[in-house]
Design a binder for these strands. Sequence first.
RNA 1: UGACCCAUGGUGUAAUUGGUAACACAGCGGUUUUUGGUGCCGUCAUUCUAGGUUCGAGUCCUAGUGGGUCAACCA
Length: 558
Amino acid sequence: MSEALEQESVHFIEQIIQDDIASGKHDGRIHTRFPPEPNGYLHIGHAMAIWLSFSMAEKYGGVTNLRFDDTNPTTEDTEYVNAIKRDIKWLGYDWEDRLFFSSDHFQTLYDFAVQLIEKGLAYVDDSTPEEIAEAKGDPQTPGTPTPYRDRSVEENLQLFREMKEGKYPDGTRVLRAKIDLASPNMLLRDPLMYRIKREPHHRTGDTWNIYPMYDFAHGQCDSIEEITHSLCSLEFENHRPLYDWFIEKLEIFPSRQIEFARLNLDYTVMSKRRLLRLVQEGYVQGWDDPRMPTLSGMRRRGYTPEAIINFVERSGLTKRNKINDISLLEFSVREHLNQVADRVMVVMDPVKVIISNYPEGQKESLPAINNPEDETAGSHELPFGREIYIERSDFMMDPPKKYFRLAPGKDVRLKFAYIIHCDDVVTDDSGHVQEIHCSYYPDSKSGSDSSGVKPKGTLHWVHAQDHVPVELRMYDRLFQVREPLADDAVDFVEHINPESMSVHQGARAEPYLADATAEKRYQFFRKGYFIQDPDSRPDHLIFNRTVTMRDSWAKKNG
RNA sequence: UGACCCAUGGUGUAAUUGGUAACACAGCGGUUUUUGGUGCCGUCAUUCUAGGUUCGAGUCCUAGUGGGUCAACCA
């Protein structure tokens, strides 16, 4: 009964949407947009924005536009357009036929600017950037007009047209909105609307010599596309009065801008500028380096879209600046992978075990459950024989009290196989373990164990001959400190974790792993979740560690 | 010394809109287990400070404190 009465807790933006629907605003229509600038790759912070705009529209019967905000030809490129589209699709969202570019609206924007000039609300300013900045004053001091503020409408119209025609060099003139040079909001002190850039644009080529600034493009494009709820991050709060001013003066469709706090993660950086630097200066191997918080990096690392969306939903939506624990993301990915990943045995650092009482030359095939969390996942066969490999770290000559693994005189269960007893250890001169001699309990076979032996530990293993070699790439957090940007006296790259990636050759996997595909996720028993890397080839298998298993033993023992 | 925004456990959110702090992650302790995984159980805050309104304040008001954003021909 409480279930029916219980109110769903909605975040503040959803509350606004519900209120708007209730009041009949825009006839209850919900239309959002995701407006990336094609100058870099999407990261997990964008996943939050994508999730928000698409899921709100979806939930309330609306639609979402994808609009590339391409108003700055010097930094933008088609390469990024394609990468961004791919990432959005990968997350599971679909803009259908609603793909737009701000550049689609350049002519309309130009006409809007002309209207403002005609209304006496915009003027061409010939001042240099320095002069304009100087004349704007500072937050405590009102600005002063430049000598061009009161040009006639006719002169402004002519100059603006000539700017467009390419008559003037870059940077020599701008179009400014005539608002209020004394406003306490610096953005209202006659903001720039257009600048001259006689540069080819990735879509419009050389047809334009002037390009609109963000403030004169974004809101107007929202309006042209009749976006009802324009959701953006907190840094644009101060822009909202300007957003509204243009809409009001132009008398166009009243889109509404609502700001939310962007998602941040600890132990990483999230701005495109800094991610670009990591790529350009070679700190990582590319935008899709598995250590990057980019969606392409996380995809390569093995994160699933489901896990990412779950994480974003759990993170919540507010207006507080925040830094989320990456552990919540890791929890989300483990939670999902635990449900879908086939279990397989891979020994990273092998040491040979010889089972002396197992007949030489004999080999048997044992069934291995693919996923104990999913009965429909089936099973596969596992070769077992007299010689196997186990993990070097699963054996100790002189173990501490609560050590459940193999040691002289101790019993241990081999997963899906038999219980073995450690009889003898062969070491070299320096005490390094060469091989371990064991005997097995023939009546302890998995599934039909009548031995009565109850070992504490269970180990993963592979057949000494029948296995496939694999390279493992292990990843750790990219930065050593929780907030790499906390101290602006220290360049954030100083905090990079020198051990954020380690390549592990010489691992051996059970043959089943050779069936891996690009998409398939695995849990390597007791080691973590892995996915095949795109660099992998049939004769050289490579797997990336997505995330470790939780490990309370390692945690306790360092 | 300006404007705007924000303030709940270690972290991130919630609190039926004024009715006596909930959830998740992390941590810690325990339990189950042929993964030291998973699952399950327990444990961890009187809501930035000071006043005020009220029978009653995390929710409202005032002041303070702390944090964020803004003076790019970037978005």
